[in-house]
Design a protein around this nucleic acid. Sequence first.
DNA 1: CTCGTTGATGCAAGCAACTTGCGTTAACGG
DNA 2: CCGTTAACGCAAGTTGCTTGCATCAACGAG
Lengths: 127, 127
Amino acid sequence: MRNTRLTRLVEEIFRADPKPLSLGELHERVQKQLPATAYSTIFRLVDRFERAGRITRIDWRERGSRFEWAERHHHHHIVCSDCGQTLDLDDEDLGFSERRIQSRTGFRVKHHSIELEGTCADCQSER
Amino acid sequence: MRNTRLTRLVEEIFRADPKPLSLGELHERVQKQLPATAYSTIFRLVDRFERAGRITRIDWRERGSRFEWAERHHHHHIVCSDCGQTLDLDDEDLGFSERRIQSRTGFRVKHHSIELEGTCADCQSER
DNA sequence: CTCGTTGATGCAAGCAACTTGCGTTAACGG
DNA sequence: CCGTTAACGCAAGTTGCTTGCATCAACGAG
């Protein structure tokens, strides 16, 4: 992968605010700095990053596909349905273990996707 | 919801083979019995069933949105990436507990979505 | 430093799945 | 049996994703 203004900008955007972004949202943010950038360019750039393992794709129920900077530990998300705040969860928080699945089902797990939705502590106490 | 040939057929299809179906797949199956059925009719029918709580929507990473007959116990899926076979998993299989999440994060969990992908026992032993 | 190769980009068209508007059909309650 | 109104079929519209192609610019060899 070549080192261009765009790749640097995208990396900067994700590092500055490590939240999952859709292609559209990323495109918007990029255009604030480089207005001529085409959607298809973002599409292919993210695709390259993903295949290089530097960006991870996640799927949110209603909110569609989103992308996240991958240089972080493996984790999942819980989203507050009131205020939108997200929190990271790791497998231990979830009690998740591939070994457990393997012994119960015989499947060798390659990939797992876990997304939670709920009400955060703040929004609960607001009542 | 009115009781039409279509609603009866859709119910029958899901009961006969309780696998998650995409709108397109369901449309195909319906057309085998009622060839004149429009895609948009399936779309609206599933929407009505979903809002009535009789069909559940699930999201599969690559395979897009699918729908499942809801009169079953709460469960998740693991899909074999080689042969496509799916297996149901319940929260206990996964070690999942809303109580655990609540005590670790303060979030009150409303909804969780867990989808796994791996290689089933058969496909593993084929090598 | 310069130049040629080739990956990266912008534009526009294409695609697939989903969604909506509208006129017609058929459930079903009276 | 009839009128109301949910369901339906058709066709057009929308959205987000994907591709083809001509042009541009990284960057490594020379």
